[in-house]
């Protein structure tokens, strides 16, 4: 790709990651959530994959790492939704204040796990279908 496109996307990439992390980590207070934040972060990775040669990106973040991350976050989400959220919600809510950053029960942890699920799904599909 062009040197201009490469430089601009290299500068822009951390800010895209920052915006996506904010949207999904702050999702229990402000509009947003795991799906929106994960999609924003995945667009950052899509920018890198399309601008630089795809082998360079895949050298840093391999498919096997993505699959491991996806499995771990899926199992974490399963545990959170099936057991923790129902068993320990009232104990957790008694230590939290509403509308603060530390609030929302297990919603914040579910948001983080769901964010990783969405990111890994989109990046895996991009790795599979993008050909240089």
């Amino acid at each position: 790709m062009d040197i201009i496109v490469k430089t601009v996307s290299r500068i822009l990439f951390p800010f895209i990651i920052l915006l996506g992390s904010f949207v999904s980590l702050h999702g229990h207070i402000s509009p947003g959530g795991a799906f929106a934040g994960g999609a924003i972060i995945a667009t950052g990775f899509a920018l890198l994959i399309l601008v630089f040669t795809e082998g360079d990106v895949e050298h840093k973040l391999t498919r096997h790492e993505l699959i491991d991350l996806k499995s771990v976050s899926g199992i974490l989400l399963l545990i959170l939704i099936l057991s923790m959220g129902a068993l320990f919600r009232s104990e957790l809510l008694s230590t939290q204040t509403p509308l603060a950053l530390w609030s929302g029960g297990f919603t914040m942890f579910s948001n983080i796990a769901g964010m990783f699920m969405v990111i890994t799904a989109i990046v895996l599909i991009l790795y599979s279908i993008v050909r240089e």
Binding site: G33, I81, G85, S103, F106
Partner: peptide, 19 residues
């Protein structure tokens, strides 16, 4: 649920099995 975003509380708490 303690979360101020009602959409997020529905998605992750009330209808967690669906999610």
């Amino acid at each position: 649920t303690g979360s101020a975003n009602i959409v997020n509380s529905i998605v992750w708490d009330f209808r967690g099995y669906d999610t």
